[in-house]
Design a binder for these strands. Structure first.
Lengths: 132, 132
DNA sequence: CGGTATCCGAACCGATACTG
DNA sequence: CAGTATCGGTTCGGATACCG
């Protein structure tokens, strides 16, 4: 079970100012927690291998953001990039083992998201209605 | 299982430009997918009830961001806000039923994050080393 | 095809000061 | 105690143009 406890005196003295677990979770989410990363991983988890423009078409992401996202994911060891030195160039992306292991928690999150989108919309509508 | 498929001709014709599931997942992640929301939910899941400054201390979040995050979570129906009209004021936050249901996927994500932080750091170091 | 480079407005987010 | 208001630096992210 995750813990989210107040920082110890010692940690506070170092100026950290947050619970150790939260700090670490925060670090990881800062790396792989953004929306595009999650969607890229979902796509690769489903198809196994995809080329740059296939991902671009599927996700509706801009070229710049896809390029940046894939670079980050490759650097973090979640995605493998295979380049064929042909003309025109061909680059294939797949999940690494760590990327595969990320698939399950991400899938759980995605399924929850799909199941609760309408609930959230309803809660919003009701909240905003009261605010009138 | 989540699907991430190219948009249909019809969807493309409407200018959507991304797969329906991804679009919806994106919408939900835009609401509850940011780091502070996740950490607030982890905290409340552990403690049940927390006051504003308790959350602030635990998470190392700024006052402004905590205020905004809690407002959003309350509006989206994930967090319940109970205010006592005393002086000084006292406000308690708890998870709603939907917030509780979010706990499991979030917990899976948090555990993965803790387990893989060092892996990611190593992958980064090795990636950056090659780039020299 | 698979990028990179540049621009630019929008959003994020912490720091600080102030309020009931 | 539990916020709100304002400021300013950083990042996000699309649009466009160009390259090998």
């Amino acid at each position: 079970m995750l813990k989210c406890e107040p920082p110890s005196e010692r940690v506070l003295a170092q100026g950290a100012g947050q619970c150790p677990d939260c700090k670490r979770i925060n670090e990881v989410l800062a790396r792989v927690g953004d929306r595009w990363s999650v969607l890229v991983i979902i796509s690769l988890a489903q198809y196994g291998t995809l080329r740059f423009n296939e991902l671009k078409r599927n996700l509706g992401i801009s070229q710049r953001m896809l390029s940046r996202t894939l670079q980050e994911l490759a650097r973090d060891g979640l995605v493998h990039r295979k380049q064929y030195p042909t003309i025109p160039p061909k680059v294939e992306y797949t999940l690494t083992n760590m990327g595969e292991s990320f698939r399950e928690p991400v899938n759980a999150l995605g399924i929850w998201a799909l199941e609760n989108l309408t609930n959230i919309d309803e809660a919003r509508a009701s909240y905003d209605e009261v605010a009138d």
